[in-house]
Design a protein around this nucleic acid. Structure first.
Lengths: 245, 245, 245, 245
DNA sequence: GATGAATGAGCCTTCATTCAT
DNA sequence: AATGAATGAAGGCTCATTCAT
């Protein structure tokens, strides 16, 4: 009141109100994006949900895209923190850690359905804009490196290439689960309850498969047969390609 | 009767022109849909790409949706034919068949990227329109049943639930691969060359994993340890949930 | 065949075919215009109904408007002929003639519903085009003069102005009946059966009213009272005008 | 409580601007609809006439149809109020009342020319939409019932059918006048000045005619001659019908 | 800080009409 | 004579965004 600012410490009424507005917009946008997807939701709808004018949104967010982006950062940070926390949990073995962060990751993706598309799609990494999603990109990279690292710690692969491929397969499973259930209309919690066991099982199977695959590889007798099959098929691929068009 | 003419043989210039136009529209639409998605692409853009007026498109396709559908049907039919052909190929064992149709499927998805979203997404199965994509739906169902059946023939699962779950895991991998490379900017052929081995490997690993998982299940000693870990984690899940919102 | 033309007399096959096409277009257009109105009907619909290409229409009619116009001429001519025939029918007294041509007129209007709008609307007399509907206008004028004349022969009005006004009233009734039933969905014949007695009655009433009105006018005592009422009302008119806006 | 403010009194500049815009849109639409009809006028034209963007129109009116409807309601209400006021005017005898509301009605129709088509045409009563013009329909019904009732009070008809027919004839005259002058390019006021006497005269004549018609009916001697004439004519009707097609 | 007013770009679609065969 | 191919103009409408208060 009497010209005596607490520099950052105490926020003025206006500042508080401002933050509240921004928060309510973000919340509304998050809710609607999640429910109905980015494209389908209009700025006016967000405003209505946030109980403010649609023009107010532009006070806090440059445009619709920026809104989405900003919306993504906090959850991503939370997720990253969760990852770190798991990695530091000494009571868990590497497999346990992998399962745990995989669960966190799945939960995150299905909790922020619409954002996933934007966050993890190639689109947001388009090169035609200079660092379009700087912080988002950083976070994403960080998250993926946790996952990658976590997989790599488990698999005793000999060559780097083998390791990379195996990591990829792990990602296929994760990506596949997310894609599969991204558009599900089932409410989040029951859905997760249902599919987290599936996730665990999948990870177990994949890890088990990788392990035995590596053992096989050390017994060249089996490996050869496989190689032949592949060659047969690649011929057929060529033909197939011409037909489809 | 007399001199029976093959009237169908020679097409008039006009017919040729017409076909060429239709083809070029379909091509343009396919390209743009693939590159940028159904919703984003406008009829005028398609027309420009096809070097015709946007009204011309309506000469050949009822509306935008019909355009997409017509674009999707022939490739889907080709793919189905390929599936059938593989299934009838006696020289292949069940695993060989699964790998083969998986390759076909992957190739198809990446050759018709954008359509994949529309064809395989839940959205296109909306029930609020009368038979909106009748034929497309049928084809899709058929394709999936081939894949499912093909997986089921390999896995010696005891219970039906186990079988279903394992099929799901297979689909996660497939879905994951498709999702992962759907937006890749790499040209199709090199891309496929690169990832088909990965697909084969993934299938092998998953099948191998499933096999050993089943064996494990019959040795309850190992199963117990795992059970404990799971319980620890599910506690953490609850907390996590509250933070994210 | 042998280079021996009958000048106009015998029509070549082509000419016959051509006439048939034109006729079938006109018929189709007439039918559709009548059923659904000028604006709603498209050239392609007319073509489909006429079993020809929509471009063919342009061979015979400059454009859609011309089509409508040409469509109007023959029925108008028929109607005019009917008028003439009635006027020459010696067995009918003036009132009988008026009733008769009024019936013909009503029947015509309701048989060619959609055209009526174009034929009798002020629009088609727009001054911004040079003689836009030459022949149609002529016919129309002729028809109206028959009606006018027919009314005038009955009424023993003293002044020309009185006569004109009385003619107008007759036209209001006619116009009113046509307007009222123009959009009726009742089939033509039952409709006419139903309303022609009404037409007769209306004419009788109007003629009767005119007759007695004239008689009244020759007894100034009553006329005065009327004049007063009118003045009262015209004051109110002024106020009313300002409110509505 | 304290100093109770008449908040409604002073409108902010913005509110004023908004109202002005809405008004100018309504005015423009009214003018254009009147001049050229509902279908022919485009939203963009209205916008241009109202000096605003066509999108602005959608700020104030849901769509084109709503625009028309909103345009129609206030004048109809005014007209209804005028009817009520006349009916309560004790100084007027039934005939005076009929004349008065007829004048109001005519004035209304010619003041809102284009809307008349939409408001009073059968088309706008289509049942295939749920209460499309609810209030408009109600008002219209109310207006007509005032007119009907007003006519019925004057005519001493014996049977209900006679009464109905006579009411119809009255409506033909009204409808005919409106139709006749609906498209007149003459400015409203001079036009009304010119034709309101005509309206009065018409009503007088029709009422007079009806009165004497009824008297005639009670003297069967005259009635017979008329009956004969009618029969002659109905024969000719049949022939006429076949020619016109 | 917040908002209502206003807009331009753009979307899908239809139609009368012309062009080339 | 007749037609299929093709098109420009236009229509109603929505949306993200800016302007001025």
């Amino acid at each position: 009141m009497e010209g005596f600012k607490m520099e950052q410490k105490k926020k003025s009424k206006q500042e508080l109100r401002s933050e509240e507005t921004k928060r309510s917009i973000a919340e509304a946008a998050g809710k609607l994006f999640t429910e109905r997807g980015y494209d389908t939701v209009t700025m006016r709808e967000i405003a209505k949900e946030a109980n403010c004018s649609h023009t107010t949104i532009y006070l806090y967010f440059k445009d619709k895209e920026a809104l989405l982006e900003q919306l993504a950062i906090p959850p991503l940070q939370t997720l990253e923190a969760a990852f770190v926390s798991v990695m530091n949990q000494e009571s868990l073995d590497p497999t346990g850690k992998l399962k745990e962060i995989s669960r966190d990751f799945l939960r995150f993706c299905l909790s922020h359905r619409s954002m996933v598309t934007v966050i993890f799609n190639v689109k947001s990494v388009r090169v035609d804009e200079v660092n379009p999603t700087g912080e988002v990109n950083q976070l994403r990279t960080s998250l993926f490196s946790y996952l990658t690292e976590s997989v790599n710690r488990i698999i005793p692969a000999d060559t780097s290439e083998e390791r990379i491929n195996q990591t990829r397969i792990y990602f296929f499973v994760m990506n596949g689960m997310v894609s599969t259930y991204l558009n599900s209309e089932e409410p989040l919690e029951p859905l997760l309850e249902r599919i987290i066991p599936l996730l665990d099982q999948s990870i177990e199977i994949v890890l088990l498969g990788m392990k035995h695959k590596l053992e096989q590889a050390q017994e060249p007798v089996n490996g050869q047969a496989k190689g032949q099959k592949d060659k047969e098929k690649s011929k057929k691929d060529k033909k197939q390609k011409d037909k489809q068009k």
